[in-house]
Amino acid sequence: MSDVDARFAQAQEDVKQLPERPGNLTLLRLYALFKQATEGDAHGDRPGMTDIVGKYKYDAWAALQGTAQQTAREQYVELVESLKNGTAA
């Protein structure tokens, strides 16, 4: 397991222990980075109009199209670290 993979695994645990729940846009970013890091580019059908949350999640993930999985892992770790430190934008 590479250093980035180990830090990614730790960040997955750390995000569950955050002192306060991140805002919806940050949660979407975390979701999209996680999906890109673990599954690669978005696939499958985009949810329909009746699944608003699913549509937003899919769109956030699809916006990362072409981002390397390793890069997504690094960005996920950086975002979790900034949330832990209280420096997230």
Rank of each mutant, 00 (worst) to 15 (best):
A32G: 10
A9D: 09
D59K: 11
Y31V: 15
G48Q: 06
E39Y: 12
G86E: 01
A88S: 06
G40T: 15
Q65T: 08
L18Y: 08
A11S: 09
A37M: 02
G44M: 11
Y56E: 01
V4H: 12
A60V: 05
L25N: 07
V53T: 12
H43D: 08
L30N: 04
H43W: 09
Y31R: 12
D3Y: 10
D59G: 10
D3F: 11
D5Y: 09
F34W: 09
A62D: 14
H43L: 08
G40N: 12
V15E: 04
A37H: 01
Q12M: 09
D59Y: 10
A9Y: 13
V53Q: 07
Y58Q: 06
A62P: 08
D3M: 13
L30W: 07
S82F: 00
V4W: 13
V4F: 11
Q36G: 03
E78V: 04
L28V: 08
G86V: 03
D59F: 10
G54L: 02
D51Y: 00
K55G: 02
T67Q: 15
L33F: 11
Q69G: 00
L27F: 05
Q10L: 11
R7K: 14
Y56C: 02
K57A: 09
R73W: 01
L33C: 07
D59P: 06
S2H: 14
Q75D: 07
L83Y: 05
Y76W: 00
K57G: 10
R73S: 07
G44N: 11
A9K: 15
S2W: 14
G86C: 02
R73G: 05
L83K: 00
R29W: 05
G86N: 01
P47Q: 09
K16N: 14
I52R: 03
